[in-house]
């Protein structure tokens, strides 16, 4: 009797577990498939691509498509690969990330530890900036960048990304500092420390987790941006996402799918690397940005 009962309950349970795992693995394969296709296509020759199919493993591995994507593929009229655009992206992403994170940290510090009459309202006002579709600022911004003389320049892109990233960085730091007891700042004030001293000595040493989250979030957002890049830059100034799109959609000559895929991977590599190394913080940023934002 007892044995029977055990079998009866263990049977469906085991089956249930099997179904769950099967579903999970199937889903994992679905998510990994495009990556696999990209990588395998990028190391195939064009002949093999034409003869074989999507999921066939490469017969022989060649890196020539990678070499071409990096240094000699055509993006529009220019045929020097993505190399230049890659470094373009680096050159505006790094300062934009650092500046927006620093300002966000100070803003969050003020909005939690030094609240004043109306500061909550100002925060709300600022947060609405997270929600607007950026299309609504593109035309005026194009004009303004021209007036400021920083149209189609690294400075211009840094400026745009900082301005429209501030709402997010402020949100991140504010939500983090909200859980730091305000009494800490009060204690430090009584101890004789001022605004900046409290920030450097007390608050900033607490902040590495949120700095990591913010830097990763901003890096991913700005590196992956296409809209600002395509509107506010042209020619050799373009960031890598714009160059990739041009490369793939260049209609002249033979379509080289392996070069397209290599180029796509090159464009994705920095953010993918960050994801692999610091995925935990990436997810935290995603959920933190969403809960309130």
């Amino acid at each position: 009797m007892a044995e029977h009962a055990e079998v009866r309950t263990a049977g469906p349970r085991l089956l249930g577990r099997a179904v769950i795992y099967a579903l999970l693995i199937l889903l994992a394969m679905y998510y990994l498939a495009p990556l696999f296709v990209m990588v395998s296509t990028s190391v195939k020759t064009l002949d093999e691509i034409r003869a074989g199919n999507l999921i066939a493993l490469p017969a022989e591995i060649t890196l020539s498509a990678w070499a071409k994507a990096w240094s000699s593929a055509c993006t529009g009229v220019d045929c020097s690969g993505l190399r230049g655009n890659f470094w373009n992206s680096v050159s505006f992403v790094v300062p934009a990330v650092l500046i927006s994170t620093l300002i966000g940290a100070f803003n969050g510090y003020v909005l939690t530890m030094w609240r004043f009459r109306g500061s909550d309202l100002l925060f709300t006002l600022l947060m609405i900036g997270c929600f607007i579709p950026f299309q609504v600022v593109l035309l005026p911004m194009a004009q303004t960048l021209g007036w400021l003389g920083i149209a189609n320049s690294t400075t211009g892109l840094v400026f745009v990304h900082v301005v429209y990233g501030l709402a997010f960085t402020t949100l991140f730091f504010r939500n983090f500092y909200v859980s730091v007891p305000q009494e800490m700042t009060k204690a430090a004030r009584i101890d004789g420390a001022g605004f900046f001293r409290i920030f450097w000595r007390i608050i900033l040493p607490l902040s590495p987790p949120i700095i990591t989250v913010t830097v990763i979030w901003q890096f991913t957002q700005i590196w992956n941006d296409f809209l600002f890049g395509v509107v506010f830059s042209s020619g050799e100034r373009q960031p890598i996402t714009v160059a990739l799109n041009n490369l793939v959609n260049t209609s002249t000559g033979v379509k080289e799918y392996n070069v397209d895929m290599a180029a796509a991977i090159i464009a994705a590599l920095p953010t993918l690397l960050v994801y692999v190394v610091a995925g935990k913080y990436f997810v935290r940023g995603l959920t933190a940005g969403s809960v309130k934002g």
Partner: peptide, 30 residues
């Protein structure tokens, strides 16, 4: 598994679009 489900979020939509454009290629793809 969680990391696998989530990694596309780290990609640019341009990269995603490029990859799917190839996968959905009417003659050579799926």
């Amino acid at each position: 598994l969680r990391s696998i489900y989530l990694y596309p979020m780290a990609l640019s939509f341009i990269v995603t679009g490029t990859a799917w454009k190839w996968i959905l290629n009417p003659s050579l793809g799926l």
